[in-house]
Design a protein around this nucleic acid. Structure first.
Lengths: 214, 214
DNA sequence: TAGATTGTTAATCGATTAACAATC
DNA sequence: TAGATTGTTAATCGATTAACAATC
């Protein structure tokens, strides 16, 4: 299933296809053409066909795409058929919000441990998981086969924590701190810079002429 | 300052420039060349110069860019010199995390009201702001000159709320619900689809060959 | 002035769209 | 078979990079 040489632009769009197909599936829609899907998603049918064909021929000429099959296939491409063990670092408001996101488990993401610098939180439970002190991270990651760390702490703390995580063999980091973490090329980082997102909204409000069509 | 015809790619990068320049400024760095900044940010110097020149000549040949001046100018381009009045819709974990983000005020974003469907929350305070019932939204938006609504509620609730907001003249929506909100072209929507972000991370973990260089 | 570095044009690269032959 | 729609190639468009003249 894994295909190399997929452009970033395509990867960025895949989860959105997955979301729309999931909704169609829930609505009981059995088949859809690239044309119909393109109208739903506000993209071109050509782009949909090009994107999907990076991974194989999922459709059938004269028919279209089987919604349920395509949904499953994109899920596999995204690795959602596999289990991932996560830890959360930072049990503040944002961390709690992320840990509490119920759908994660449905997609194979299991929160296994929560860590925080605040000693008062030690032993308290977030979603049934006791909060542990930061120094326990390395042992926990190794013993529990942790793939992904969710970083929801200030940037000054995030940099050394990322180093620790890399040293104990983490594979991926979902980064919410306001810094671009530098890691070896084998470690994948996906950052969500919330303040940058808000600034983009601010830009479009300040410069409405910039996007006349949307 | 507002310039039209700026590409999406440039707008996406602007807040990142702003972040790096802010850090340089805090470190007391006075001037920087596109070359130096490019090494710091892992982009090309050419791209930096092209991006900045969309908005004017902020540099000086033979010298480089004045950090503090460039920081201020990009801030103005992003509209961060202006005040924005926000409301939060949805006082769950994520909503609380967003309301509690202290730096917002520093950038001119003021949280004025919080709304939630849960009657038990009514009158309780989030960051000093009492939670109000959803039906109070229209009056509150109009009376308090609200620009931006932050939507942190499930998608089924988000769709009708967005309609209400549009009807009472909201200018921008910062959308955290898992749906693409459909609004008139005069209303700006910036969506943060957290689950899509996590799926992209999952993809890169499942298909490591896809990004050999980062 | 000489050296450095921008601003900007031209060249390249990559991503999107259009078109159509293949095929169900 | 005829009609529909994919898979895929070719054309277009846009974004990035390279190069260098302008200029501080």
């Amino acid at each position: 299933m894994a295909v190399k040489g997929i452009s970033r632009a395509v990867v960025r769009r895949l989860p959105r296809y997955f979301r729309y197909l999931g909704e169609l599936k829930d609505e009981g829609v059995e088949k859809i053409s690239s044309q119909e899907l393109s109208e739903l998603m506000n993209v071109t049918a050509s782009q949909i066909r090009q994107d999907l064909n990076n991974f194989g021929g999922f459709g059938q000429q004269g028919y279209g795409y089987n919604v349920s099959y395509l949904y499953d296939e994109i899920g596999k491409i995204l690795g959602l058929d596999q289990r991932h063990n996560l830890i959360l670092i930072g049990a503040g408001n944002l961390g709690k919000a992320l840990a509490g996101y119920a759908n994660f488990e449905k997609r194979g993401f299991y929160m296994r441990g929560v860590f925080d610098v605040n000693p008062e939180l030690k032993g308290k439970k977030i979603r049934g998981i006791p909060v542990m002190p930061m120094e326990d991270i390395p042992e926990f990651v190794k013993k529990n086969n942790i793939d992904i760390a969710v970083i929801a702490i200030p940037k000054t703390a995030a940099v050394p924590v990322a180093r620790t995580l890399v040293d104990c063999g983490i594979r991926g980091i979902w980064n919410f701190s306001h810094v671009d973490l530098e890691v070896p090329p084998t470690v994948m980082v996906e950052s969500v810079h919330l303040s940058e997102s808000l600034m983009r909204l601010s830009y479009t409000l300040t410069n409405p002429s910039a996007f006349p069509m949307q």
